[in-house]
Design a protein around this nucleic acid. Sequence first.
DNA 1: TTGTACGCGTTATCAA
DNA 2: TTGATAACGCGTACAA
Lengths: 349, 349
Amino acid sequence: MPKKNPNKNNSVTLKEVAAELGVSAMTVSRAVNNSPNVDSKTKKRILEKAKKMGYTPNLVAKSLVSSKTYTVGVVIPEISHSFFPDVVRGIEEVVDSKAYQILLTNTSDNFEKEKKVIEALKAKRVDGMLISSSLMTDNFSYYKELIKSGMPIVFFDRCIENIGASCIKVNDQAASQQITEHLINLGYKKIGYLSGPKKVSIGKARFDGFNIAMIKNGLPVDDKLIIENGYNEKGGYDAMKKLLKLPAKDRPRAVVAVNDPVAFGAMDAIKDANLRIPEDIAIVGFTNDIRANLVTPPLTTVNQPAYELGKKAASKLIDTIQEKGDLVENVELITNLVVRESCGSLLYK
Amino acid sequence: MPKKNPNKNNSVTLKEVAAELGVSAMTVSRAVNNSPNVDSKTKKRILEKAKKMGYTPNLVAKSLVSSKTYTVGVVIPEISHSFFPDVVRGIEEVVDSKAYQILLTNTSDNFEKEKKVIEALKAKRVDGMLISSSLMTDNFSYYKELIKSGMPIVFFDRCIENIGASCIKVNDQAASQQITEHLINLGYKKIGYLSGPKKVSIGKARFDGFNIAMIKNGLPVDDKLIIENGYNEKGGYDAMKKLLKLPAKDRPRAVVAVNDPVAFGAMDAIKDANLRIPEDIAIVGFTNDIRANLVTPPLTTVNQPAYELGKKAASKLIDTIQEKGDLVENVELITNLVVRESCGSLLYK
DNA sequence: TTGTACGCGTTATCAA
DNA sequence: TTGATAACGCGTACAA
């Protein structure tokens, strides 16, 4: 029968400990908070009694007074998706070391849900938020107001830049250009692109990188070879299916996928069409998902330092909260090209 | 300059809205909470003003009054590890649908850390906790007290059973027995076991299943062929290395790994020793990790319904919090054997 | 060294 | 229908 009043929790308060000892609540407060100016004997008595009674400080009450919750909100499109678990691990590590904890939320890539969870995080008075946004319009008013309200925000991976909040991401555009040029240097000319929604920051940046590489090397960008779809395996599968419906002579000889999950889906589609990778169609991805070196053939891709990105974003947020590194900045972590076998080569043949 | 007082947030309160309108805070409270007994015209005025002023209810204050935070703590050994991201996704989905959110914590498989985060969650007055415990002794006093204090707890995957809290897990022992018997039925007799710490619930249950299968089939359990190590890739690699140091005639002909990451590590060790899988050593895992069908050769394993497990655990916790399905229960979700190529066969040769 | 009064933002309760 | 008051648990500021 641990509960007396079904609507109340039965946790011990400062006042109750104080009453047991015939001292004031204030003295108990001082004792449990290691304040100076407490007689060492009374302090000892208090701490013993508090422990025996199972006293646990009530951070809800504390937060109400201090306006700090030591909690940060983390807003992510898909918790279990590809590189996000590693990002979260990085975030958790940094945040834990500063005595904060994370309220983890999932938006299912849906901006309406995103707004809903952010409102909930606001109501819970988190000290700041780490956000990977699924916003797909260029109407940033919602975030502008959020930032204007004084809420510390750091965007990561899928950023909304230059509206007053810091952004931690990778060099998406340059890396996408690099991996595209890698294909070009291997002799491919007719190259397709499997895109995610381009309104999402990474969608645009990576597509831009692809275009720059093509144009710089004097290759045509053929709209028929560019398919926009979701950021997951199914999105890649369906997009590739579309490309494969083109007459054989119009098909791309190589394909750049916006991320690894899309590449995996596309690889399945290529195999289902009884074509070979890379002999018939070469393919490259972006992420260096845990599966990238296990698929057949192993996927050439861009390694994204997910764990480090999480750490960096969390550090920046905590600095912003504590007004140390208060300045807004855009940080680009550097990726590296990981060449495996899915890109093959047209040279020396 | 969004902040006036550096120590205070500048969010709008009921009282401020009330002052603007010349009504009492109580009336505003009633209006924003859809209470009955508010004049529809004043209600409308209030809601408009509240919106314009950017009022967001302060759940911290609300929680102080109601002793409910609509937050549950999730305690996990390794956030980014293998099947936990899927579990968390299941948890998040259920919890979100009930208007709760999750405080996610990581224990790094360390019980001291586990206690620390649980104390923090208690201080934040979470309404309940979902715990996958790394406790490695049979001294359950810490959890017994936590449960006695009235904190709603549901263990999942790595459970501490029969101390007053519900447990949601898979049929570890039966599944481990099943996959071991699968090897036995394929003709293997000399079978090794790569264990995790047996003080962890799944460590013991799976090891028991292995033993039962061996004994039931009249096969010897050779202590030299049982290596205990961590639950991750490195643990598996090092454990397998040890087995491979045995003289060739003493080596196991097949190996049961406590989970897929351990199996992956072991496979690397086997390959590094220039032995073939399954021709020289067959191997099976447990989890059906996303990589299991991608490694070479694809891994025979036990499929654990991670997402469903998360959903079930979260549902049970919410019921416990709301005192609906208040009874304590142990639920076993059913796994299924996934036969791939890593187990080979000694039959028909 | 210890204690008292007050306020943090909200709601339950009772009074008007 | 609306308002005043007290309470949730704690810490700051001051007084004793």
